[in-house]
C-alpha cells in the first residue's frame, strides 16, 4: 500500500500525459497538469513554512547554540507573512475601489513590497554578488595552465572576461574595424567564441541532457527507478 499506490499514481499520471500529447483533443491536459503542479508547489511552500517553524521552535525551546538567531528567523517570517496575507498598506484597485481585498499586494508602496524591496532584494543580490570574490579566489588557486585543456579553458575565460570590458576593447582597438583582421579584435573574438565553440559544446551538452532526462523519465514511469520513494529498491 505504502509503495504500490505511489507507483501506480506515477505511472498513470505519466502515461496519461504522454499519450495525451499525441491526441490533439487531449493536449490541454498537459497545461492543466502544469497548473495542478503549480498549485501543489504553492501548497509545498506552506509545508516549507511549517517545517521552518518546527525546526526553529525546537531550537528555541532547547536553547541550542544560536537560538537567538532563530527568534530573528521566526520574527521576520511572521512579520512578512502577516503583511503579505493581510495585505497591509495595499491601496484599492482603481477599477474596483469598494473591494478592499482586490488590491495588488506586490504593488509599490505596500508593506509587503517594502519587505521585498528593502530586505529580500538587497540581501539576496548581495549574497550572489559576494560569489564574485569567491569565484575569483577559487580561480586564482585552482587554475593552472599545466596542459592544453587547462590552457584552453583559462584562455577562453580570459578572452570572454576582457571582451565584456572597456579594457578588452581598448587593447585591440588599433586593429581596423572594417579590415580583414577585424575578427582578431577581442570583442569580436569573444563573440565568435560564444557563437561557434560555445554553441557547439552547449549543443552537445543539451543533447546529452535531453537524452538523460528522457531515459530517466522512462525508468521512473515504468517503475524501474523508485529512488524518489526512499528506502532503496
Amino acid at each position: 500500500m505504502k509503495r504500490t499506490v505511489p507507483l501506480i499514481i506515477t505511472a498513470t499520471v505519466g502515461v496519461v500525459l504522454i499519450v495525451s500529447n499525441f491526441i490533439p483533443a487531449f493536449r490541454a491536459w498537459g497545461e492543466e497538469a502544469t497548473t495542478f503542479f503549480s498549485i501543489i508547489a504553492a501548497i509545498a511552500f506552506v509545508l516549507g513554512g511549517g517545517s521552518l517553524l518546527k525546526v526553529h521552535l525546537r531550537k528555541i525551546s532547547d536553547r541550542n547554540a544560536g537560538w537567538g538567531y532563530s527568534i530573528v528567523v521566526l520574527g521576520t517570517f511572521f512579520a512578512t507573512l502577516a503583511v503579505g496575507l493581510l495585505k497591509i498598506g495595499v491601496t484599492p484597485n482603481p477599477a474596483f475601489p469598494d473591494m478592499p481585498w482586490a488590491g495588488d499586494v506586490q504593488a509599490r508602496g505596500t508593506a509587503f513590497w517594502w519587505a521585498y524591496e528593502y530586505t529580500f532584494k538587497p540581501l539576496t543580490s548581495t549574497m550572489f554578488a559576494m560569489l564574485a570574490f569567491y569565484i575569483a579566489s577559487a580561480a586564482f588557486r585552482a587554475f593552472r595552465a599545466k596542459n592544453l585543456e587547462a590552457m584552453l579553458l583559462l584562455g577562453t575565460a580570459f578572452i570572454i572576461l576582457l571582451g565584456r570590458t572597456f579594457a578588452g576593447y581598448w587593447l585591440t582597438s588599433w586593429i581596423p574595424i572594417d579590415g580583414p583582421f577585424s575578427g582578431l579584435r577581442i570583442e569580436e573574438l569573444s563573440v565568435y567564441i560564444m557563437q561557434v565553440f560555445n554553441t557547439a559544446g552547449n549543443r552537445a551538452i543539451i543533447i546529452g541532457i535531453a537524452l538523460g532526462i528522457a531515459s530517466t523519465s522512462l525508468k521512473i514511469l515504468m517503475g524501474l527507478d523508485r529512488s524518489y520513494l526512499g528506502g532503496g529498491n
Binding site: I39, V46, G48, G49, V72, G84, T119, F120, L123, T124
Partner: peptide, 22 residues
C-alpha cells in the same frame, strides 16, 4: 542578515504562492 533572508524569503514565497496561485 542570514536569518532575515531565511525568514523573509520563506514568508515571501508563501505569500506569492497564496495570492498568485492558490
Amino acid at each position: 542578515a542570514e536569518s532575515v533572508v531565511v525568514g523573509v524569503s520563506a514568508a515571501y514565497w508563501m505569500v506569492v504562492g497564496f495570492w498568485d496561485m492558490i
